[in-house]
């Protein structure tokens, strides 16, 4: 027997969340495989307000209750996010799983989360009394440790309206589909007037949370594309200092080597573009 609530509105959901300890249930693709179905669930699939994709002056706003498929098929979704979603699990799971659930699960292996980190997304969190906006990197405090109060819900993901237009995405899974990332990489950049004007990279599945190294990315910003070779070595050396993966199913050594290979390729791609 599964216990739970299936509210129709966000207000109703937040009231329940205030009164009772309930697990938010988006698509349930992680929760359904859990053997201990003893908790009480807050089913979010009926809340239309959480399933919208819209933009305002500052942000592209993705409702946390949107399924991967809905995000992937939406005209406003950035191409890098579409590509990352296309490699998540398999269509049946993408039709159910939500982006809010991907974040709330708290894993550094979550494929949409990697892109949200690379895009410096913010999260709109709400409780019954109000809301707060938190940058995603601050939201993740560690593995399965989130800056989310017991009575709060993740309501929206806010992506900047202006993001770099060029990107590289690479997911390494143990197979072509239904594979948890063993390592994932997102890199975005812009070129204006022959110079790199923006650069943002993120690595998934190498540490307790997604790894961002903005201070290293900064090395490339301002560099003329034609002179990338002259800073590449310094850039990779700095990245080598900054990226220190942990051991897991695959070794830290493998992870680090691949991160640096992919960054090397990232710079080479910038040169060609």
């Amino acid at each position: 027997m599964v216990n739970g609530y299936a509210p129709q509105t966000l207000r109703e959901a937040l009231e329940i969340k205030r009164k009772e300890q309930v697990s938010p249930y988006g698509g349930g693709t992680d929760l359904m495989v859990d053997h201990h179905r003893t908790g009480t669930y807050l089913f979010l699939h009926r809340i239309a307000e959480m399933q919208e994709i819209k933009q305002d002056d500052n942000y592209l706003r993705l409702g946390a209750g949107c399924t991967f498929t809905e995000v992937q098929e939406h005209a406003l979704t950035p191409p890098i996010l579409k590509e990352a979603i296309s490699r998540i699990a398999a269509p049946a799971i993408r039709n159910l799983g939500t982006i809010g659930g991907n974040i709330g699960n708290g894993s550094a292996k979550a494929d949409s989360v990697l892109v949200f980190f690379a895009l410096d997304a913010k999260l709109r969190l709400m409780d019954a009394d109000g809301e707060r906006i938190v940058p995603i990197h601050a939201f993740y405090k560690g593995r399965k440790a989130l800056d989310l109060a017991l009575d709060e819900l993740i309501v929206e993901i806010l992506l900047p309206r202006v993001i770099p237009t060029r990107y590289v995405y690479h997911k390494i899974g143990a197979r072509a589909a239904l594979a948890i990332s063993r390592l994932s990489f997102a890199g975005l950049w812009n070129v204006e007037g022959g110079k790199i004007t923006a650069c943002s990279t993120a690595f998934g599945a190498i540490d307790q949370v997604v790894v961002r190294i903005p201070e290293v990315d900064k090395i490339l910003i301002g560099t003329p594309v034609a002179e990338l070779d002259s800073v590449k070595e310094r850039y990779l050396a700095a990245a080598g200092e900054a990226i220190n993966p942990i051991d897991g199913r695959i070794s830290a050594h493998y992870r680090k080597t691949v991160c640096l290979n992919l960054l090397d390729d990232f710079v080479e791609t910038m040169k060609k573009a």
Binding site: A90, R175, L178, A179
Partner: peptide, 12 residues
């Protein structure tokens, strides 16, 4: 589990 012990899927 099938996620840890990876066998080829249809996509492979």
């Amino acid at each position: 589990s099938y996620s840890d012990y990876t066998m080829p899927t249809a996509a492979d």
